[in-house]
Design a protein around this nucleic acid. Structure first.
Length: 748
DNA sequence: AAGGCCCTTCTTTTT
DNA sequence: GAAGGGCCTT
């Protein structure tokens, strides 16, 4: 071993890499010679372990300086996890490794090399909402029909072009629609740059462009990164692949780890064929298969394999486990989505009550975020704790986004998207007309709208632009301008991030604006406070670091690290890289998994299959596959067909649970729905700890004495629920729910 | 300019 | 079954 520090310190070192703990294949990967290494790692085969051990090996055994290592992951979560593991493996020796997502690493490079770029270093990063708004704006500016050219679909086309290194100039125009898309793309790029902004895709694309156009810059980075390691290589897209080649153009020590079978981001440009491309581009690369699974029982693996082996064009792997056969997978067919959720919750509760499992041993996975709502309700009713990954859309909340946009404006007044969003928040009399006047005046003065506003605010009547606006629009604009100018001055004079935050809240009377005293108002204000708390963590790094973090950290990353005793609810996509003793996969119906939108495209269908594969292979011990015979998709209930993937599972691996009986013929869907609701309500009454009100305003209820009434209000008080009801017979009554024996009636 | 109401439309997954 | 857009009124 090479100790680079004084000998007296060696015993303070954390445990060092121990090759004996690895199996032969893992060891071969960790200790592979210089050059290109392709590790095809099945699920649960110790992929992350191999990656971190490899880095440790490079540093400890090969004497590589951390500074010369670049490690790229796909998600922030994975980056954090690896950072953590490196820290415990290497201690401070892990400092200096460039570790992060593709996007974060690119943002870092772009900010450093701003002098070579067409935007300056304090650029903002537009998230999907912003991008959408900008595409819409481009479409409007070109006087196009939004119905015909939907911002979502145009944006998808632009994004896909960017992921394939296609600039507006190169955009292929085989149809009239392509022609239009190309023009929108051009306009969109101009709008972005005028705002001194880049979008997610630009982070990668502009970095590639930077490295291609500036050989000396490329040389500098390529020289520096002696070793490049990539996680989830199957999910890289063309731009990312190019980027790796550019950054590796001097040393070409590329260590990539991936699994074609777990490629689930095709829709985002990911191309698992990059694995094949890699083998072609580097014919001498060392290829290592990790096939021993340390996670699941053999039955789980067999089931997963039965699903995935139907896919073509892949390296077949023969996953094996030494954990024994284990139990068969349970298949449960519920009558509808309510019963589906009830089955999940009941089953978890039984396991937990039996003492054989803890809540945190369970995960419930689904195809679409919309499916989480019923589950949440069922968990709440049962008093079972859960944590929900993503879907919270914390950053998508209006109040959160508003404040981020104020901050973005302070940071970069040219940001038109943010300006358009908050110039009238709270309402100060700036409408469409005023915005048009502002933009016109700005264009004539050759300023951005934000710059013009700041000048109005700073100079007041002395400004040359003062006379440009009519009386009606002038004051609100000058008003906002002086706010913005004041914030910028304060920030420049060193006001801390929390201080700035508070000043913005105060100046805009934001609390009065969003907190109207209702429950929702209170919640909105809580969200603001939560954002402030996040900002507090960045009081050192300042505004730039905070905004960059907000842009690059997704809702998926807001998952509380400590699960406590809570079960995890998450999409199949979000489940990748995680493991749980018990896995429920719900919604195994045609149209949902596989999703209806993948029906016509074999490639997409193959990806749906991989999604299920990823889900099943998350399980250590048990898998529950759940579906519903009937489901309310949108509006009315619809009969569901079982997922085609269920047919691929041999009976020997499956144990059916519950009745498969179809509804009795004479029972109408309406009465069935009614029965299910009664069942749910009855269940609610028996459930334990009250977390959420059972009654809500406008609910109809029946009291044993006073008869039917309407709920006016309900709240949790001292662990019980206090309900205000207006009864037809006696009028207004305030009741304690646990004593009053109220019956919840079906909605009419 | 702003708020309210009714209409349509659409729902995949996320850095 | 929600969210956004269009159209209405104030």
């Amino acid at each position: 071993m090479i100790f680079k520090h004084s000998a007296g310190l060696w015993y303070n070192r954390p445990a060092m890499i121990n090759l004996d703990q690895l199996n032969a294949q893992q060891r071969a990967a960790v200790t592979a010679p210089l050059g290109q290494v392709l590790v095809l790692a099945g699920p649960g085969s110790g992929k992350t372990r191999v990656l971190t051990q490899r880095i440790a090996y490079l540093i400890e055994e090969m004497g590589v300086r951390p500074h010369n290592i670049l490690a790229v992951t796909f998600t922030n979560k994975a980056a954090r996890e690896m950072q953590h593991r490196l820290q415990s493996l290497l201690g401070d020796d892990s400092q200096g490794v460039w570790l992060g997502t593709f996007h974060a690493n690119c943002a870092r490079i772009l900010r450093r090399e701003a002098q070579y770029l067409s935007f300056d270093h304090n650029f903002v990063i537009m998230d999907s909402d912003d991008q959408q708004a900008l595409v819409k704006r481009a479409i409007r500016e070109l006087n196009l029909d939004e119905k015909l050219y939907r911002p979502t679909s145009i944006h998808a086309a632009i994004s896909s072009a960017k992921n394939n290194l296609i600039t507006p100039a190169d955009f292929p125009t085989q149809s009239y629609r392509d022609e239009i898309t190309k023009r929108i793309y051009e306009r969109y790029q101009i709008l972005l740059r005028d705002s001194n902004a880049v979008d997610f895709d630009d982070l990668l694309l502009e970095t590639v462009r930077l490295l291609v156009d500036n050989p000396q810059v490329r040389e500098r980075y390529a020289r520096r990164f002696e070793h490049i390691l990539v996680d989830e290589f199957q999910d890289t897209n063309l731009v990312q692949y190019e980027l790796l080649k550019l950054l590796g153009s001097v040393h070409s020590n590329l260590f990539v780890v991936g699994d074609e079978d777990q490629s689930i981001y095709r829709w985002r440009g990911a191309d698992y064929r990059n694995v094949l491309r890699f083998e072609q581009d580097f014919p001498d690369c060392l290829k290592i298969l990790l096939e021993q699974n340390y996670r699941s029982t053999q039955t789980v693996l067999d089931a997963a394999r039965a699903v995935i082996d139907r896919n073509k064009h892949r390296t077949r792997k023969h996953l094996f486990s030494e954990r024994g056969m284990g139990e068969r997978l349970v298949l449960y067919e519920a009558v509808d989505e309510h019963a589906e959720a009830a089955f999940v919750v009941d089953t978890i509760q039984q396991w937990v009550t039996s003492g054989k499992a803890r809540g945190s041993d369970f995960a419930v996975m689904y195809r679409t975020n919309a499916q989480s709502r019923l589950l949440e309700e069922a968990f709440l009713r049962a008093g079972l704790p859960y944590r929900l990954v993503g879907a919270l859309r914390f950053y998508g909340r209006r109040e959160v986004k508003d404040l981020i946009c104020f901050l973005r404006l302070v940071h970069n007044p040219d940001d038109e998207v943010s300006l358009a969003r908050v110039i009238n928040v709270p309402p100060r009399g700036v409408g469409e007309k005023t915005m048009v006047a502002l933009q016109l005046a700005a264009r004539q003065a050759n300023l951005t709208a934000g710059q013009l506003l700041i000048e109005l605010g700073e100079q007041g009547e002395r400004s040359a632009h003062w006379g440009r606006f009519s009386g009606r629009s002038l004051l609100p604009l000058a008003d906002f301008g002086s706010l913005l100018a004041g914030w910028r001055r304060a920030a420049a004079e060193g006001l801390s991030l929390p201080g700035l935050f508070d000043r913005i809240l105060l100046d805009t009377a934001y609390q009065e604006y969003i907190d109207d005293g209702s429950n929702e108002g209170k919640e909105r204000w809580d969200n603001v406070q939560e954002l402030r708390r996040l900002g507090y963590e960045f009081r050192e790094g300042g505004l730039t670091a905070f905004l960059e973090n907000l842009a690059l950290v997704s809702d998926q990353d807001t998952l509380p690290e400590e699960a406590g005793n809570a079960a995890t609810l998450l999409t199949l996509h979000a489940a990748k890289g995680l493991e749980f003793r018990f896995v429920f996969i719900i919604g195994l119906d045609e149209g949902l998994l596989p999703h209806a939108r993948s029906k016509d495209d074999p490639e997409e269908m193959a990806e749906e299959r991989r999604l299920l594969y990823v889900g099943i292979t998350r399980a250590k011990d048990r898998v529950y596959l759940v579906r519903a015979q009937q489901r309310s998709q949108y509006g009315g209930p619809e009969i569901q067909e079982p997922s085609r993937f269920l047919e691929d599972l041999p009976d020997s691996l499956i144990q059916r649970q519950g009745q498969r009986r179809q509804r009795e013929r004479w029972e109408s869907p309406e009465s069935l729905a009614l029965r299910t609701r009664r069942f749910s309500a009855a269940q609610a009454q028996t459930s334990a700890a009250l977390i959420e009100p059972r009654f809500h305003p406008t609910d109809r209820v029946r009291h044993p004495v006073w008869g039917e009434g309407i709920v006016m209000e309900s709240r949790i008080q001292d662990g019980d629920e206090t309900v205000d009801v207006f009864f037809e017979s006696v009028g207004f009554k305030r009741l304690v729910a646990s004593l009053a024996n109220l019956e919840l009636l079906p909605k009419t």
